[in-house]
Simulated assay, not measured.
Amino acid sequence: MQVSGKIKLINETQTFGASGFRKRELVLTTDEQYPQMLLIEFVQDKVDILDNYQVGQDVTISINLRGREWINPEGVAKYFNSITGWRIEASAAAVPQQGQAPKSFETTSIAQNEEPDDLPF
């Protein structure tokens, strides 16, 4: 699953417990009619991939939705969801720069100085 938008916030890496569990949170503002601010967690070895990104950058993040049950002391079940990121890519890299043709059009017959084929079939 993927989600796209603009990075609003990147928190510092947090380390928990004797095991050294690491977590880093990112807030993404989606590109929708009603933008959503999603808290996305990156854990363990994935926290370091956020070092290459900045607030304000347009990105696409590959995510997993996680859910868990917790039984409180009164015996009532509570449910929690989290969004865990595992890959992030800059959105601008997928768009050709202005004035550049997409690679699939660079080697057409016209580019090789041949006459264009104007037949309709």
Score class of each variant (00 low, 15 high):
2 Q>D: 13
2 Q>Y: 14
4 S>I: 05
4 S>D: 09
5 G>I: 03
8 K>N: 13
8 K>S: 10
9 L>P: 03
9 L>D: 09
10 I>Y: 12
11 N>P: 06
11 N>S: 13
11 N>Q: 12
12 E>K: 15
13 T>F: 03
14 Q>T: 14
16 F>E: 01
17 G>P: 08
17 G>H: 10
18 A>K: 14
19 S>T: 12
19 S>F: 11
20 G>Q: 10
22 R>F: 05
24 R>Y: 09
24 R>F: 12
25 E>N: 14
25 E>I: 03
25 E>D: 15
26 L>S: 04
26 L>V: 03
27 V>N: 01
27 V>C: 01
28 L>R: 05
29 T>W: 01
30 T>K: 06
30 T>Y: 07
32 E>R: 09
32 E>N: 12
34 Y>D: 09
34 Y>L: 07
35 P>V: 07
35 P>A: 11
35 P>L: 04
36 Q>L: 15
37 M>K: 11
37 M>F: 10
38 L>E: 02
41 E>F: 03
42 F>C: 01
42 F>T: 08
42 F>E: 05
44 Q>F: 03
44 Q>W: 03
45 D>L: 01
46 K>F: 08
46 K>L: 00
47 V>C: 10
48 D>H: 12
48 D>M: 04
48 D>Y: 07
49 I>L: 11
51 D>L: 08
52 N>S: 11
54 Q>R: 08
56 G>V: 00
58 D>R: 11
59 V>E: 06
59 V>D: 02
59 V>P: 07
60 T>N: 06
61 I>Q: 09
62 S>V: 02
64 N>R: 13
65 L>R: 10
65 L>A: 03
65 L>G: 06
66 R>V: 04
67 G>P: 05
67 G>H: 14
68 R>M: 06
69 E>I: 04
71 I>G: 14
73 P>T: 07
74 E>V: 12
75 G>S: 12
76 V>Q: 14
76 V>W: 06
77 A>V: 11
77 A>F: 10
77 A>E: 09
80 F>T: 08
82 S>P: 02
84 T>G: 02
84 T>R: 06
85 G>W: 13
87 R>L: 06
87 R>H: 14
89 E>I: 14
91 S>A: 15
91 S>H: 07
94 A>M: 10
94 A>T: 08
95 V>W: 03
96 P>G: 01
96 P>D: 00
97 Q>S: 14
97 Q>Y: 05
100 Q>D: 09
100 Q>I: 02
100 Q>E: 11
101 A>E: 00
101 A>L: 00
101 A>Y: 01
102 P>I: 00
102 P>D: 00
104 S>T: 02
107 T>K: 02
108 T>V: 00
109 S>W: 11
112 Q>W: 07
112 Q>S: 12
112 Q>T: 09
113 N>F: 01
113 N>W: 01
114 E>K: 14
116 P>G: 01
116 P>F: 00
116 P>R: 00
118 D>Y: 06
119 L>S: 05
119 L>E: 03
120 P>E: 08
121 F>E: 08
